[in-house]
Design a protein around this nucleic acid. Structure first.
Lengths: 219, 219
DNA sequence: GGTTTTTGTTGCCAACCGTTCAAGAAGTGA
DNA sequence: TCACTTCTTGAACGGTTGGCAACAAAAACC
């Protein structure tokens, strides 16, 4: 066993509680007193274990990513189903997460994306890094789909990846503001209907497709 | 002219500056000192003119809605173009707004949607009200489109409205985290390609559509 | 049992928070 | 000029913030 006095609450449990608090109320909306109360550790304990508030926020966000993000992205990249179903599972994971009554609504990463844009530089860098990781995971799954013929060979992969990335944020924001899991899944399925046509011909004759100015380059 | 000492800065100019500050750093990330400095009014002046911080935030958000939201929704409901182009203009307005270098990135309303979920009840109510107004504007435009035959008669209007609503948030979040206006418009156009098929038949044979479990009810 | 090591607890700090009061400055109307 | 009204200014309030030093408590090692 460890040498000194045992912790009243494990670092992992404390970090999980801190994560929930930041997730719920954001960086500047959460005080160190809030975190001490939520985690069960007194303030000096938090400082000794994790460092100052900025560092603690970074560790909480990374803990969130390890707990909820990484597994979902790993499943996506495992590519065990059709690409559409894998993407549906990914977006469905966000929908399920935000509808889980035991956690704050929304997605901590998306919240942080909105919250930290004008915050500490280290927060900006961290959040942008996680966002890039998310994008890369989606992009690689799409490349695999194109390689095995699940999607057309001329698919505009970066464009589709950006689209899925946006759907991810949309589900998080809609969930944050109270949409049910069923509504979120309807939203996800509606969006996935846009995917297979990316790279293919316009989906309807000449009547309305002329209104999609910016879409020509992928037709 | 007014009776007493004239204001150094007009209430409108001050409120605009306050709006920018809240838009940029959120409610709890912005202090009254920040607001005083940004607006050019001293703190007692802010209290006299607008009330306390919570009230000031509400007035700033409403000012944002009046300045940027209402005109865009009015153009949408004017229905002067094809529904797809009107929706593209709406989402394009968000893209343009967030790419305007003179303002903070993102959309203040979407930021508030994320920021205020666990905040003051009056903020929650206000933000939910504005969100409902946004949804209603989109919904009414879609109903009009169905009525005049721009969209199929069996279009699932609430579902499509939720989809557009989500695209709105997605554009805001993507813009908040640094996407260029061109990227945002690519995203918008990709999403609009999902719309015309809502209510119509599945867009591709039997190969991949079976993966869209939740989509049956609108096929 | 005593030492060492690690943690929890108490209490405090300077700085800042949102908020307000009192006094003065700058206009209008008579 | 004189009151009257309105805004600005400076200072201050009590409370909270993030952060920390000092000491007590609890375990392992010798």
């Amino acid at each position: 066993m460890a040498r000194g006095r045992p912790r009243k609450v494990s670092k992992n449990d404390a970090l999980y509680a801190v994560m929930l608090a930041f997730w719920q109320k954001g960086y500047s909306g959460t005080s160190m007193n809030d975190l001490a109360e939520a985690s069960g550790m007194a303030k000096p304990g938090l400082y000794a274990a994790f460092g100052d508030k900025e560092t603690l926020f970074e560790k909480a966000l990374l803990h969130y990513y390890d707990t909820f993000g990484r597994p979902a992205f790993a499943r996506l990249q495992a590519a065990k189903k059709h690409v559409l179903e894998d993407l549906r599972d990914l977006l469905g994971a966000v929908a399920a997460l935000t509808s889980d009554g035991t956690k704050p609504t929304g997605c901590f990463l998306v919240n942080a994306l909105v919250d930290c844009t004008y915050g500490a530089q280290s927060h900006v860098d961290l959040v942008n890094g996680l966002k890039a990781t998310r994008f890369a995971a989606i992009r690689e799954r799409l490349l695999k789909a194109v390689a095995v013929g699940e999607m057309p060979a001329d698919t505009d992969v970066p464009r589709v990846a950006t689209f899925v990335d946006g759907q991810f944020s949309a589900v998080a924001v809609l969930g944050r503001s109270g949409s049910s899991e069923a509504e979120l899944m309807d939203f996800v399925d509606t969006g996935l209907r846009a995917l297979p046509v990316c790279g293919g011909p316009p989906m309807f004759g000449g009547e309305a497709s002329r209104f999609l100015h910016g879409a020509q380059k992928v037709q």
